[in-house]
Computed example of a mutant assay.
Amino acid sequence: MNSMLACIVVFLLSAAVGTGIWVRNSNRLRFRERGWALFILIIGTVFIMAQILRIPVSNPADWIAAIFSPVYRPIIKWIEKEV
């Protein structure tokens, strides 16, 4: 029961922050900034809710390593050959 209450609180707080972002940037026609801020807010909210509900989520550093490993592994091998 406590985890559901925590999820509701997190959702309400993120909705309040999202509304603030929307209102603040709508007057200035900053569509890109508003979109990226809301995207980051949604991703963070999903991660927090997953942590509250004890859903296993891998480390984001592992995701970054998986994406960039085809790029940096040949560079590391090239540097090690030079030394």
Rank of each mutant, 00 (worst) to 15 (best):
I42E: 05
R73L: 13
I43V: 15
V46I: 15
N2K: 14
I67W: 11
V23D: 02
F11G: 11
L41Q: 07
I75Y: 10
L41A: 07
L13M: 15
Y72I: 11
Q51K: 13
S58G: 14
A16D: 02
E82G: 01
L5C: 05
G18Y: 07
P56V: 04
S3T: 15
I52H: 01
N25K: 07
W63K: 04
L29I: 04
R34I: 01
Y72T: 08
I64E: 08
V46K: 00
R54F: 06
T45M: 14
S26G: 00
Q51T: 13
A65E: 14
P74H: 04
I64C: 03
L38C: 07
M1P: 12
L41P: 05
W78R: 09
F39Y: 13
G20A: 09
A16N: 05
I42Y: 11
I67H: 08
E80H: 12
S14T: 15
N25F: 13
P74C: 05
G20Q: 01
R34N: 11
W22R: 09
I64L: 15
L38G: 06
L29V: 04
I52E: 01
K81V: 08
K81Y: 01
I8N: 11
V9F: 14
I67V: 15
R54C: 04
L41R: 01
I43H: 03
